[in-house]
Design a protein around this nucleic acid. Structure first.
Length: 914
RNA sequence: GCGGACGUAGCCGAAUUGGUACAGGCGCCAGACUUAGGAUCUGGUGGGUUUUUCCCGCUGUGGGUUCGAGUCCCACCGUCCGCACCA
C-alpha cells in the first residue's frame, strides 16, 4: 500500500469512468426539479487560462452541489467560435480560421476535461458550426421582419487597426476595448438592432438575482433622462430641435449650439461665416474620439452667422457649432443656458456670449453656473417657481403652444451588429439591382462561408473580393449582390443558452420540449467585463424572442406538464454571479533610483523613483544617487534592491516621509502606491507572470488547483496570485485521501470527545451548505479544513468512537465532493466501494447534534474582557450574573467600586459597568 | 469631474442582529525525523511581563453615537471598478 497519492492516475481513472458511465448526462425528467447551470462559453483562443478555471470551478461545484440537493442538473459547455483572432492567425500564419479554431477547440476540450468538470458533452454547441449558425442567421431574419433590425447611415466607431466598425459597447475611452487602439468616427451605412426599443424594460431588474454593480452599470449605460424637446424657429424657416433636462431654464437659453455634423449647419451658415464653419467642421472630423471627449480641453466653436428665436421670450439668439455637442446624443443640438450649465458658462465666457440667470442662487454664491435648487427668476410666467414646478409648468406650456413636448432621452444607442470581417456569421440579405434589400429565404440558410479565400494582410474581409460568394441572384432570378459584412460575435452568444438544450435540433433553434423543462438558466457565472455587452445583449435577445412568439410552443409544452410559463421568458438568466480577476503575483524587475542615506546596513530613502525600461544607468541621475537597481523582494516598506553595478543586495527602507515617484501614477505618490504598483499586475506574457493551469494540474492535480482557487480568494473579488499558497490546498487534498485509507483504532473512547467531533461535523454541514448557496467558497473550504483538523486531532488522541470517526470522514468527503470531485470519489470507493459520491444526497443537518451544550461566556468590566466562563447555553440572567461575579479576576476589577449597570446578554456576554 | 465598492496580521483572508477581532491557509521561528530538506510531523507566531486564561495595544486617519464599534454616523486619506462635455 503506497503512501503516495498519485493524483494523475487517480484523476484520469475517474474522468474516464465517469464518462463511460455517462454520470453527467442529464435528460428531461419532469418528476424531478431542474437546475440549469451555465458558465460563459469561452472563446477558443488556444489554451485554457487560469481565469477560465477560476470562473468555471464554482459553476461546476455549484452544479454538483445542486445535484446532491436533488436537482436534475443541466451543465453544458461550448465555444464562442467566431471571432477576430482566428483571422489574425490566418493572416499571420497562413492557417485557415476554421482549422485554427477547430484545433483550439480540440485542445481546450481536453483541458476542460482535465478540470474534472461535469459538463454534458452531448449538449456541446459551438457557434461557427453550420447547424448553429443557421439559426443565428434565422434570428437575424426574424428580427428584420419584426423591424427590430434595420440598415441605416449613422456616425459609427471605425477601428483602423481592426478594419471594421464596432459597437458603442466595445469602445472605451475612444479606444477599442480589446486592442486599446484608437477608434475614429465615421459616417457609414450599417446594420443595427433596435435594442433601444427595450431600454425601459432593460432597466427593470425585478425578479432577477444579479450583483448590484452589474445592474448599476447597465442602468448607467442605458442612461435614461427625462426632460423636453423644444423647437427653436430659425430665419430660414427651419426649426432646430433640442433636448434638455432643464426645460425650466428656457428663458436663460441665450444661444444654440449644434454638433458640427448637424444636418442644418449648411443651411444656417451665412456667406461670411462659411469659410470658418467649413474649416471647423473639417478640423472636428479629423479630431480623434479621445481628443473630442476630453472634458478638460478648452472648448472650441464657430458662429454660423445664423439666428434662431427663443420661443419663450421671442429673443433672437445666435446659432453656433461646437464639438462639445455630440451628434449622436439627443437631437445633436442644445440650447445653451450658461447661467445654469457649467459647460455653457465656459463657452459663453470664452466667446463673449450673453449670460442670464434664471434660477436665483443663494446670496453667498460666488461661482459661475448655478446648478442648485432655487426659485426661477427672469423667466416670465415661471418666476418664483422651484425647479420641479417650473419644469412641469414649462412642459405644459410647450405642449399648449406647440413649441415642444416632454420627452425621455436615452444614452443607449442601437446595437451596431455588422462587422467588415470574414470569420463571422453572414448577414442573410442580398442587394437587388434596384437598390432594395431582400432577405435570403429561410430554407436556404445557413449561408456558408467560402473556404477557398485569400487572406491578404490588407485587413479587408476576403468576402468583399470573393466573387463566387457575393455574386448571387434575387428571388426574381436577377443578378444581386450578397451582403459581405458578417455579424458581431455577440449575436451568437446572445442565444447560445437555447442551442445547448438541443444542439442537433433541425426544426427550430431549440426543442420546445427541452426548453419547457430546462428554461430559464438558474445559475450563470462569468466575468463582469461583459456587464454592458453580452449580458445586456442577451437580455434584449430573450425579450425580443418572447415578443416575437418564439417561446409559444415552449409555453404549450410547459402547460402540458402543469408548469406555469408566466414570466419564464422575461429574462434569460435568473441568477448571475461574476468572478473577480486573478492578477499576476509579486513581480521582480522594476528598476528604481533611490536617493537616501546609509543607516548602518541599510538605506533609508528620501526619494524613490521607479524608472521604466531596463536598468541602464542614466548619467543625469548620478549626482546624489545612492542605489540604482532591480527590486528582488519587498515587504511593507522595505525593498531589497540588487544594484545595477553588481554587489550584494541592498535593503532600502521607505519611510512615510520619502518622496515617491511612479510613472503613470499622477500626483504625489506614497509608499502604499509604490507597493501597489509593484505587486498587483495583470497577467501578461511580457511581464512573465502568467499562471499556467496545465502545469499546476500536472504538479498538484485538478482537485488541488480547484480547491486552491476557491480557497485563496474572495471569489467575486479576485486578487494577486500567490504560487506558494497552493501547498496548503495540496496538503489538504492528500490528507483527505489518507483519511480514507487509514484504519482507525480507538483507544479509550470519551463520550465528550465523540460528541465534539460529531458537533464539528454537523456544524460544517450547516456552514458549508450556506456558503455554497452564497458563493462563499473560501469560507466553505476553510470550514472543511477545520473538520479535517478535528478528525486528525481525534485520530491522534484515539478517543472518539469509530462510528463517529467514520461519519466525520464520510461527511468530509461528501461535502468536499463538489469542489474536489476526484479525490472524494476515490475515498468514497475506499469506504463504500459502490456507486458514485456524486450521486449521493447532500448530508442532512441535525441541529441537535450541532448544538453546543455549553457556551464560553465573556465577562467584561467597563467593556474590557476580564474573564470567561463556561456556562450552560440555557442559563438564566441571574445565574449568568452570578457566574460572572464569581470570577476572581472580575472581582478584583470591581472591588471597591460601585456597580452602576449590568448588561447581561446571556449566554454569550455579561458587561459590568462600574 | 460624477457614481459605486473597498481598506483587518508579513501575505491571501474570517468575523449572523453592534457583543472574546484575526477562523482557515500561506509565510516565518523553534523542535522532531533525516545523508539532506524546498518532504513530513509537533509547537509557536501583536507587545510587555513576575512565563501567567496577568496587563496593555490593535481593524487606513481623525472625530461622534453606545455599557460595548471592524460593523452605525460625520470628515479626511488611499485603492479598485464603471462612466466621463450625454445637454
Amino acid at each position: 500500500m503506497s503512501d503516495y497519492y498519485d493524483h494523475r492516475a487517480t484523476e484520469q481513472k475517474w474522468q474516464a469512468r465517469w464518462e463511460e458511465n455517462g454520470l453527467y448526462q442529464s435528460d428531461v425528467d419532469w418528476d424531478r426539479p431542474k437546475h440549469y447551470a451555465l458558465t460563459m462559453l469561452p472563446y477558443p483562443s488556444g489554451d485554457l487560462h487560469i481565469g477560465h478555471w477560476y470562473a468555471m470551478t464554482p459553476s461546476d461545484a455549484r452544479a454538483r452541489y445542486m445535484r446532491m440537493k436533488g436537482f436534475n442538473v443541466l451543465f453544458p459547455m461550448g465555444f464562442d467560435a467566431f471571432g477576430l483572432p482566428a483571422e489574425n492567425a490566418a493572416v499571420q500564419r497562413n492557417i485557415h480560421p476554421r482549422k485554427w479554431t477547430y484545433e483550439n477547440m480540440e485542445r481546450m476540450r481536453d483541458q476542460l476535461r482535465s478540470m474534472g468538470t461535469m459538463f454534458d458533452w452531448r449538449r456541446e454547441a459551438f457557434t461557427c458550426e453550420p447547424g448553429f449558425d443557421r439559426w443565428t442567421q434565422w434570428f437575424f431574419s426574424k428580427l428584420l421582419e419584426a423591424d427590430l433590425a434595420y440598415r441605416n447611415e449613422a456616425v459609427v466607431n471605425w477601428s483602423p487597426t481592426l478594419q471594421t466598425v464596432l459597437a458603442n459597447e466595445q469602445v472605451i475611452d475612444g479606444k477599442d476595448e480589446r486592442t486599446g487602439q484608437p477608434v475614429v468616427q465615421k459616417m457609414m451605412e450599417q446594420w443595427f438592432f433596435r435594442i433601444t426599443k427595450y431600454a425601459d424594460e432593460l432597466l427593470e431588474f425585478d425578479g432577477i438575482d444579479w450583483p448590484e454593480p452589474i445592474k448599476r452599470m447597465q442602468t448607467n449605460w442605458i442612461g435614461r433622462s427625462e426632460g423636453a424637446r423644444i423647437r427653436f424657429p430659425t430665419d430660414g424657416g427651419d426649426e432646430i430641435e433640442v433636448f434638455t433636462t432643464r426645460p425650466d431654464t428656457v428663458f436663460g437659453a441665450t444661444f444654440l449650439v449644434l454638433a458640427p455634423e448637424h444636418a442644418l449647419v449648411e443651411t444656417l451658415t451665412t456667406q461670411e461665416q462659411s469659410e470658418a464653419v467649413a474649416a471647423y467642421r473639417i478640423e472636428a472630423a479629423e479630431r480623434s474620439e479621445i481628443e473630442r471627449t476630453d472634458a478638460t480641453r478648452t472648448k472650441t466653436g464657430v458662429f454660423t452667422g445664423g439666428y434662431a428665436i427663443n420661443p419663450a421670450n421671442g429673443e433672437k439668439i445666435q446659432v453656433w457649432i461646437a464639438d462639445y455637442v455630440l451628434v449622436t446624443y439627443g437631437t445633436g443640438a442644445i440650447m445653451a443656458v450658461p447661467g445654469q450649465d457649467e459647460r455653457d458658462w465656459e463657452f459663453a465666457k470664452d466667446f463673449g456670449l450673453p449670460i442670464v440667470r434664471t434660477v436665483q442662487p443663494p446670496e453667498d454664491f460666488e461661482g459661475k453656473a448655478y446648478t442648485g435648487e432655487g426659485p426661477a427668476i427672469n423667466s416670465g410666467f415661471l418666476d418664483g417657481l422651484e425647479i420641479v414646478e417650473a419644469k412641469a409648468a414649462m412642459a405644459q406650456w410647450l405642449e399648449e403652444t406647440g413649441n415642444g413636448s416632454a420627452a425621455i432621452q436615452y444614452r443607449l444607442r442601437d446595437w451596431l451588429i455588422s462587422r467588415q470581417r470574414y470569420w463571422g456569421s453572414p448577414i442573410p440579405v442580398v442587394y437587388r439591382e434596384d437598390g432594395t434589400i431582400e432577405l435570403v429565404p429561410k430554407d436556404q440558410l445557413p449561408i456558408l462561408l467560402p473556404e477557398d479565400v485569400d487572406f491578404k494582410p490588407s485587413g479587408q474581409s476576403p468576402l468583399t473580393y470573393h466573387e463566387p460568394f457575393f455574386a448571387t441572384t434575387d428571388s426574381d432570378g436577377n443578378p444581386a449582390r450578397r451582403e459581405t459584412d458578417t455579424m458581431d460575435t455577440f449575436m451568437a452568444s446572445s442565444w447560445y443558452q437555447y442551442r445547448y438544450l438541443s444542439p442537433t435540433y433541425e426544426v427550430g433553434p431549440f426543442d420546445p420540449e427541452e426548453a419547457a423543462y430546462w428554461l430559464p438558466v438558474d445559475t450563470y457565472t462569468g466575468g463582469a467585463e461583459h456587464a454592458v455587452m453580452h449580458l445586456m445583449y442577451t437580455r434584449f435577445f430573450t425579450k425580443a424572442m418572447r415578443d416575437l412568439g418564439m417561446f409559444e410552443s415552449t409555453e404549450v409544452a410547459m402547460r402540458a406538464h402543469q408548469r406555469d410559463p408566466a414570466g419564464a421568458f422575461d429574462e434569460p438568466m435568473t441568477m448571475y454571479r461574476s468572478q473577480g480577476q486573478i492578477l499576476g503575483g509579486e513581480r521582480k524587475g522594476d528598476v528604481v533610483v533611490v536617493h537616501g542615506e546609509f543607516d548602518q546596513n541599510r538605506v533609508v530613502a528620501t526619494r524613490v523613483e521607479v524608472v521604466q525600461g531596463s536598468g541602464q544607468k542614466d548619467g543625469s541621475l548620478q549626482t546624489d544617487v545612492v542605489v540604482v537597481g532591480e527590486i528582488v523582494r519587498r515587504t511593507e516598506t522595505v525593498l531589497q534592491v540588487a544594484p545595477a553595478d553588481g554587489g550584494g543586495h541592498v535593503t532600502v527602507e521607505v519611510p512615510d516621509s520619502a518622496e515617491v515617484s511612479i510613472p503613470g501614477v499622477p500626483g504625489e505618490n506614497d509608499v502604499t502606491q509604490l507597493r501597489h504598483h509593484l505587486d498587483v499586475q495583470r497577467m501578461s506574457k511580457s511581464k512573465g507572470n502568467v499562471v499556467n493551469p496545465d502545469e499546476l494540474t500536472e504538479a498538484y492535480g485538478a482537485d488541488t488547483v480547484r480547491t486552491y482557487l476557491m480557497f485563496a480568494f474572495e471569489w467575486e473579488k479576485g486578487g494577486p496570485w500567490d504560487g506558494r499558497g497552493i501547498k496548503g490546498a495540496h496538503r489538504f487534498i492528500i490528507d483527505v485521501w489518507r483519511l480514507g485509507r487509514l484504519e482507525y483504532t480507538a483507544g479509550s473512547v470519551a463520550e465528550v470527545a465523540t460528541a465534539a467531533l460529531r458537533r464539528q461535523a454537523h456544524k460544517a454541514i450547516d456552514k458549508v451548505g450556506r456558503d455554497l448557496e452564497g458563493f462563499r467558497w473560501n469560507t466553505a473550504v476553510a470550514e472543511l479544513m477545520k473538520l479535517r483538523n478535528a478528525i486528525n486531532d481525534a485520530r491522534s488522541a484515539g478517543n472518539v468512537a469509530p462510528q463517529a470517526h467514520r461519519e466525520a470522514v464520510e461527511l468530509l468527503v461528501t461535502m468536499l465532493a463538489p469542489i474536489a470531485p476526484h479525490v472524494t470519489e476515490e475515498v468514497w470507493h475506499a469506504l463504500e466501494g459502490q456507486g458514485s459520491i456524486h450521486e449521493r444526497p447532500w448530508p442532512e443537518f441535525d441541529p441537535e447534534i450541532a448544538k453546543d451544550d455549553s457556551v464560553t461566556m465573556v465577562v467584561q468590566v467597563n467593556g474590557k474582557v476580564r474573564g470567561t466562563v463556561e456556562v450552560d447555553s440555557m442559563i438564566s440572567e441571574e445565574d449568568a450574573i452570578a457566574a460572572a461575579m464569581a470570577i476572581g479576576n472580575v472581582a478584583t476589577h470591581i472591588e471597591g467600586k460601585e456597580v452602576r449597570r449590568l448588561i447581561a446578554r446571556q449566554p454569550k456576554l455579561v458587561n459590568i459597568v462600574v
